[in-house]
Amino acid sequence: MPDFSPTQYAVPLFVIAVLAEMLWAKFRSPQAYEPRDTLVSLAFGLGSTVAGGLFGGLAIYLFIAAYDYRVFDFGTEWWSIWWAWPLCFVLDDLKYYWVHRAGHRIRWMWASHVNHHSSQHYNLSTALRQSWTGAFTFGLLFALPLILLGFHPVMIAICGGFNLIYQFWIHTEAIDRMPRWFEAVMNTPSHHRVHHATNPRYLDRNYAGVFIIWDKMFGTFEAERDDEQIRYGIIKQLGSFNLLWAVFHEWIGMIGDIWRAPWKHKLSYLLREPGWSHDGSRDTSDTIRQRWRARTGQINQTESVARRNLIADPGEAA
């Protein structure tokens, strides 16, 4: 099978689309683009490409080694089995949902994924904010079940490339809503704006890559509302256009927390959700949402406090 990388062929289309959106923004939404922010996004994209070239060999070695232990064998001409491609694409997207969800709920993985959410603007250049440090998390392990099922690593890589291409166009405010049937099944700009929002209602919602049905199946779907303006970025905004700080700030914060924490809590600062603290002094997306629900009358204050205590019991502080 010839070497094929779908993202390489899509790059010219990405450039044309960004330029077209910039033109749209000039006349319809001038605040959509900020020059320094856009430059940082472009630098992220370039850096992630370099990082992929430097550390991609690790993934290739791991996947090829695991492929020898596959349960099913599609034969030496696996690439010609037509039905395997759509099946692989769907299963790879399900895999993406779970690795993406883990990227928001495990701080070690969030330290890498936070890069993608660090812009306070939402435009096609934001899609280029890809991590430089993904190889230092265990996200690669989520692909192992597909390999053990018999899907060749090259097939998975190609399907993943098309998945990434699909996700590019949903990073825009230029498109309001798609037809209802499309919104019901597919990830769209509307659904993904929710995912990039810092509003308490929207935190840690809509993890989908291509098919929004996963969020509906696993209870993480939230529809965009017309009566609430979206605020983009992260809970504690960067406040800087320094590229290196944008790339590494969460790694620095996490390592600092681990260093200062009592021994029995050190591992939790690595594996618990972002914002967790052993003394309950910080907020996670769960506590922010619970407090918002209590404030808006969706739950009573007693329930909110009880749930917060379950997340981080001050009595456990040391």
Rank of each mutant, 00 (worst) to 15 (best):
R180Y: 02
S125F: 05
F142A: 13
F151M: 08
F142W: 14
N206H: 09
N199D: 00
R201M: 07
P200W: 07
V210K: 14
L149F: 13
L144V: 15
I106T: 07
T188K: 01
W169T: 05
N199E: 11
F218S: 10
W181Y: 02
M178L: 11
Y97V: 06
V185F: 04
M109I: 14
N199G: 10
R205T: 00
A223T: 11
L149N: 05
R105H: 15
H196V: 07
R177I: 10
M217H: 04
H196Y: 11
I165R: 12
A208M: 05
T198P: 05
M217E: 12
D92I: 06
E173K: 09
R180P: 10
L124H: 13
Y96K: 12
L144P: 05
I175V: 15
R201W: 03
G160K: 06
W110K: 01
R105K: 15
Q229A: 15
I165H: 05
D215I: 06
L124N: 03
Y202G: 05
I156M: 02
R101T: 08
K216Q: 05
Y97D: 08
I106G: 00
D227A: 14
F151L: 04
A102R: 11
I158N: 00
V194I: 15
F168L: 04
R129N: 02
T133K: 01
Y166G: 05
I234S: 04
H113F: 02
W169H: 03
F162L: 02
N123T: 13
G160D: 13
R180N: 12
K216L: 06
E228L: 09
L94F: 12
L140G: 02
L141Y: 15
G160A: 09
